[in-house]
């Protein structure tokens, strides 16, 4: 890995009695698209906002481009761009005007027409912020984050609440950032987003980093297995299905049973026989290749979705 442009060591953050971050550490190399994957409340936004300089950490250290986000001042702010999760602009501001304003505040001369074209907003140049759709607002937010050509871009849940088509548009923009060799830190709770976009993914849960690696490395934890997810008429007892042929692990998640099997056909046959003997019934059955969600389930016993 080339030299780290983002370094996080033992980051801790507390809100009253709640420990939001409990010793999170990772590094991001220059030009890397790095994902923080976890459910809501896992500590993703706290981590990214500490790195943006929007929050102070209660413990540990964080540097971006060699600068402390709290002490780096204008030099730090010029080196990073960010799309915040909860933010807005005044209703009456126009799209082109917002880009020009932030370019001026960063002290740069940016070709705003090119930026508007790049983000599909050229027809909205004169439109008020309040007249934009959710997707257009998010594209504008990304354009504003890039107006000063930062080295590091923070994207906090950039596709949350957007419809699938707009989400794909945002994916294309992030792919473009990768081609431009930007360093990107992305938080998400969408598995497909992390798998598709990120060079490496850190899985975070309850303020702790529980797994880190490329999507392939993480999925290799479940290598050679297939996920079999079933719902039963009567819930299976703890450990009841662990002994079925081919099963490597089995957990109950949200009332459904999730098994990983090295021999799916044999496992299914064994499952049906077992259920018959227990006078139980199979209500539904899904088979899928393992994903990052399986890694999360394996590590926490819960799903990524709330």
């Amino acid at each position: 890995m080339s030299e780290a442009i983002v370094q996080v060591r033992d980051l801790a953050k507390r809100y009253g009695d709640v420990e939001a971050l409990r010793g999170v550490s990772f590094e991001i190399a220059e030009g890397e698209v790095f994902g923080l994957l976890g459910p809501n409340g896992a500590g993703k936004t706290s981590t990214i906002e500490i790195l943006e300089g929007m929050r102070t950490a209660d413990g540990g250290t964080a540097t971006v481009s060699g600068l402390d986000p709290q002490k780096g001042g204008a030099q730090f702010k010029r080196s990073v761009g960010a799309v915040l999760q909860s933010t807005s602009l005044p209703d009456k501001v126009r799209v082109g005007e917002a880009l020009n304003l932030f370019a001026q505040l960063y002290g740069v001369h940016t070709d705003t027409t090119r930026l508007l074209q790049r983000f599909g907003l050229e027809e909205k140049r004169q439109a008020s912020y309040s007249k934009l759709s959710g997707g257009q607002k998010q594209r504008l937010a990304i354009a504003l984050a890039l107006v000063h050509e930062p080295r590091v871009v923070f994207l906090d849940e950039p596709t949350a609440g957007l419809d699938p088509q707009v989400r794909r548009e945002i994916y294309d923009i992030i792919e473009e950032l990768r081609r431009d060799k930007k360093t990107v830190l992305l938080t998400t709770h969408y598995i497909e987003e992390a798998e598709r976009l990120c060079d490496r993914v850190a899985i975070i849960d309850q303020g702790k980093l529980i797994a880190l690696g490329t999507p392939r490395e993480l999925k290799d934890r479940s290598a050679g297995t297939t996920r079999i997810e079933v719902s039963l008429a009567k819930p299976a007892a703890e450990g009841e299905l662990n002994g079925l042929e081919g099963v490597t692990n089995c957990r109950t998640v949200d009332g459904r049973t999730v098994m990983h099997s090295t021999r799916p056909p044999q496992t299914i046959v064994a499952l049906v026989k077992h259920l018959e003997s227990k006078n139980n019934e199979l209500q539904s059955l899904e088979i899928a290749a393992p994903s990052l969600e399986d890694v999360f389930i394996e590590l926490t016993g819960r799903r990524l979705r709330e």
Binding site: E52, M54, G73, A74, K77, R78, V80, G81, A82, L84, S86, T87, S88, L89, P90, F102, L105, Y106, G107, L144, A145
Partner: peptide, 15 residues
Amino acid sequence: FREQGILRRFRLAPI
């Protein structure tokens, strides 16, 4: 501006 998160957007800029 503060309640709508407008200030925090400006906070990202060097001002």
